[in-house]
Design a protein around this nucleic acid. Structure first.
Lengths: 195, 195, 195, 195
DNA sequence: GATGAATGAGAATTCATTCAT
DNA sequence: AATGAATGAATTCTCATTCAT
């Protein structure tokens, strides 16, 4: 297709992109266990063999999808961290449910596919480091006075609460969510008063 | 779920229990997608047909395991809430990783199996109510002064942070965990000073 | 089927026998590489799944066929060894081409399927021991005078020459075969004169 | 096979040689059934399409490898026959295991691929004729007295015993091998005393 | 001379499920 | 209460081969 580079796995291949998108949709709608070359191919309007041509093993495919998700997530994270209010941006980022269904699937998947696990672990680690670096630069000293909380601790707290709200929301359980969000907002207000 | 429901394979059967245990192990080790009558039977040392005899469909089996897990979780929760220090007990409960791998699998599963989803949703709801009731009775008024946090909000916060620590720990990411735990501990200390 | 025992793999199952026979034919006609559940099933007039039901893996199937061949071979060998002229019987046994095509396939197969290799190795060892025992009892002392040949050495010699004749014959090469057979016959005549 | 045949991929091509070598290794290690353009290409560090470019069909490739093996075998044979002691050289040649794994594969293959079979049959015939010619010139008359053995018969005998030793050795069965070799050595000594 | 893309076929398994006993 | 037999559908993966460039 086209003039561009066309090695297998070339990131420019349209077919490859189609396959990745179809797989993402499939995971989102039916879970990681629904990923099979057949299902993916059907959804992408391609032949199953072609899926194997681009992604010889299912692991390869899943890792590629996880990397794609990681990249998209990175973009959102950077946007949040580079905004005028990085801490609240991060909090919004964690409360954003759009990535969560996928993240949950991949978390579960990581328990069983070592390759996926490694890829996720290293990405999580990098994200955490990036978050901590930005927050530290911004409010490192001020946090120290706050019950001894650190930037690293803060990201864990915000990530945890945000994710809990999204996950439970997915199940239809919402009790206490608004209260928890209000609480975090108040707390951030004390920490970082909006003038 | 009434105890007396007259389904094949009385709930008291030892064989039934064997099957459930084998399934639990399987999910814990290889994920929900690994559950099949064959695999379960092999692990339990039974014939595949027998698994079908007790649990006609895989959904039946998965729901039974999820209910069993829910019951066990309830026991642990009650223990925590009836202890001398219910709030810290709850915090321990949330940080306990023993249920999390399973919970994660079922959370993912819930996205795709409506029956599992309903069962989990109603259980989560009941658990949350129970937690809130106890905490409310204990420190309801004191919480009000705390940035407007409520009992419901508190459970969400503790649940979220605890779960984040467990999930990330499963991936091998631990940065900020100790800090976050220290922070929560300090905060609980201010809220509920141990004499 | 029938009243007899019917565990999977029960040697009495007619279906199992059908599968083994079909596999044997397939190997004989098209080589070990032609063995697949599909091909076997088609030839046996069964469904591929049924082949897997009886022989979960292809190794299982191949080993079963090799054991069956070994048993049949054992019967022929015993017949030869228990005849009035065991040494010449053995020589006939080795020249008999009926087992050779299969034996060749399994020999080649043994290089690549460890399970088959082990099964064949232990059978070959037992056959050799049996041959040596009989010959030793019969003409052990007499052989000693014969250039120092032993019973074990004799079986190797007869087996080798017999097999060479059969293998080359299969290729259509026959030069020197009659000479070699005459030579062995003369030699056996000197060793064991027919009165 | 003329040297100048104008097939795709001149016989002098280094790439062609790489492919043949990779195929040989593959057959030796995993058997003829493991030969596929993919596997060969991977092992040779080439693209599958390139293998097809040189050898349009798998048969073409297998025949080429068999011819190459035949040529190498011819070289060894000539060396043995042109040495100062051609008969013992031939005996060494037959006991040499390095060619046997391949020979066995091709023998099995010959049963199913007519093209391979023809190529092997004519080569075997030529080799036998060459061996007989040399031995005949050397000890033809002397053999006549030896139980009526002929040069042709002798080659069959030596080939058979040598091959038996190598084949059984490959299986791990070695009983009687030393005895058989001693026996042949004694016999050759009587026939062709080393002064 | 070489190669990337694509495809249809088929391999080895695994599975859920049904049925008769 | 339990189980052996059977089956059709899927799943993962490998292959030979073709074609356009």
């Amino acid at each position: 297709m086209a003039i561009a580079a066309r090695r297998i796995g070339a990131e420019t291949s349209a077919t490859r992109a189609q396959i990745l998108t179809a797989t993402e949709e499939l995971i989102r709608e039916e879970g990681y266990a629904a990923v099979s070359s057949r299902r993916v191919a059907t959804r992408a309007g391609l032949k199953p063999s072609l899926v194997h041509y681009y992604f010889p093993t299912t692991d390869d495919l899943l890792i590629a999808v996880s990397l794609k998700g990681a990249e998209e997530s990175d973009v959102q994270l950077e946007e949040a961290l580079l905004s005028s209010d990085p801490v609240r941006g991060l909090w919004q980022f964690f409360k954003d449910s759009s990535r969560t269904a996928m993240a949950l699937e991949f978390l579960a998947l990581a328990n069983h596919r070592p390759a996926v696990r490694e890829s996720m672990a290293s990405h999580s680690y990098e994200m955490r480091r990036r978050q901590v670096a930005v927050i530290d630069r911004l409010i490192g000293e001020r946090l120290a006075g706050e019950d001894g909380c650190t930037s690293a601790g803060l990201t864990v707290v915000l990530a945890g609460i945000g994710r809990a709200i999204v996950l439970e929301g997915g199940l239809g359980v919402t009790e206490g969510h608004q209260d928890a969000m209000d609480f975090v907002d108040h707390w951030l207000e004390r920490l970082l008063p909006k003038e």
